[in-house]
Simulated assay, not measured.
Amino acid sequence: MKVLVTGAAGFIGMHVSQILLGRGDEVVGLDNLNDYYDPQLKRDRLARLTGRPGFSFVQLSVEDRAGMERLFAEQKFDRVVHLAAQAGVRYSLQNPHAYIDSNIVGFMNILEGCRHHGVQHLAYASSSSVYGGNVRMPFSEHHGVDHPVSLYAATKKANELMAHTYSHLYRLPTTGLRFFTVYGPWGRPDMALFLFTKAILEGRPIDVFNHGQMIRDFTYIDDIAEGVVRVLDRPATADEGYDAMTADPARSDAPYRVFNIGNHDPVKLMDFIHAIEQAVGREAQKNFLPLQDGDVPATHADVEELAAWTGFKPAMPVPQGVANFVAWYRDYFKV
């Protein structure tokens, strides 16, 4: 297949692209290489793809309407993996317009490109943050997601609604993936694992929010990438059992699906920190702080729908995944 992977220089995008290339697909990677975090890390990820047979790179922002229209018209993609977005819950508190530009306008451009150029399937990144104020665990696709607590979460919910509209109106198969706290080698510098590892190795204290009373369904990057590709390979179809009278959020009479992709094994934040300490070989100095605006105290993914659809369940144990990251970090930064 010829696949467009947006955000190809990103954490998840690089790993997904590697799998697609490894099995012989043609990948057009798109990224704007912005400075939300150090662009050098993005360039180094990109270097792992550049030169491989079947890979080409386009530096472009998804919110560039004219540029995206040209790209779809020229390339004639079979399928699209849309991972480019303005990420981060906390960043959205100070920079809201960045989320509208990238996550709303950009997603609109992706949908229009798919609609007008015969794309067979759009798989796109949603987020566990859409569950927002919902405290019913584990989070299920059958639950409502109507109470976002950050603008980032609201844009991801909007993406799901926009995708459903295009699936309904134009029969475009779309599948959203609600990622749960992705971690692992080549991860983002604004994520807890990266921040904690860096601080511990440098002998600085780490900021532990909600006084350590956090629970996260940490999901290893290889599991995430495998899940994305398996979903891409099975385009969404209309659910013949859909009942408009009950309107189950996980079902539709349009070719639309949304799945949780998490480890289904939530870990206490203090246990996660302990795993980092074990891997690094020293204890962290901890600065306990209140829960930050936009954060939720716990996440836990029900992944039965994903397993039923693809036969896949994430499985990497957190201690091993953390150790893999720390080994990569030491090698990459030579520390």
Rank of each mutant, 00 (worst) to 15 (best):
D101H: 01
R79V: 13
M162V: 03
T197H: 11
A327M: 14
F272W: 09
A298M: 12
R330S: 12
H264I: 09
D223P: 07
S128F: 12
S167E: 10
F209P: 15
F11T: 01
F196W: 14
G132T: 02
P39Y: 04
L49H: 03
V119L: 06
R282D: 14
L93D: 11
A238T: 06
Y166L: 01
P235S: 10
R79H: 11
G311E: 12
V267R: 08
A9D: 08
D64Q: 09
A301T: 02
L4W: 03
Q94S: 15
R178E: 01
D101W: 00
G203C: 03
P255D: 14
Y332N: 14
D223T: 07
L93F: 14
K2W: 06
F57M: 01
A327F: 06
V27M: 04
L195S: 15
W328A: 12
T310S: 05
Q285T: 15
T6Y: 02
E240V: 13
L289Q: 14
P317S: 09
V119H: 00
G311C: 06
V58E: 06
L201V: 01
G203H: 06
G7Y: 00
V267G: 07
E141C: 02
M316R: 09
V318R: 04
D38H: 04
A47Q: 13
L151G: 03
G176K: 01
A236N: 13
H117Q: 13
G22E: 03
V89N: 05
M68L: 09
I221D: 04
P266C: 05
W328D: 11
D101G: 04
A284C: 03
G118Y: 08
I100E: 09
G144A: 13
Q40S: 15
D25A: 07
F288Y: 14
H82R: 05
F196Q: 13
Q86S: 15
D35L: 00
G281C: 12
L289V: 13
P53N: 08
P266R: 00
D207F: 12
T299D: 14
V335F: 12
G54N: 04
E74I: 04
N95P: 08
D207L: 07
G22A: 02
F55H: 03
F77P: 06
G133S: 04
W309D: 14
I110W: 01
F218N: 13
A284E: 08
A250P: 08
R216A: 10
K76R: 15
G133N: 09
F11H: 03
P317K: 05
N263L: 07
G203N: 06
D293L: 13
M316V: 11
K2N: 10
C114Q: 10
K157C: 10
E69D: 13
G54S: 07
V62E: 10
A163T: 02
G113L: 05
V228A: 01
V58A: 02
S17H: 01
A154C: 04
R234Q: 08
R204V: 07
M14A: 12
L49T: 01
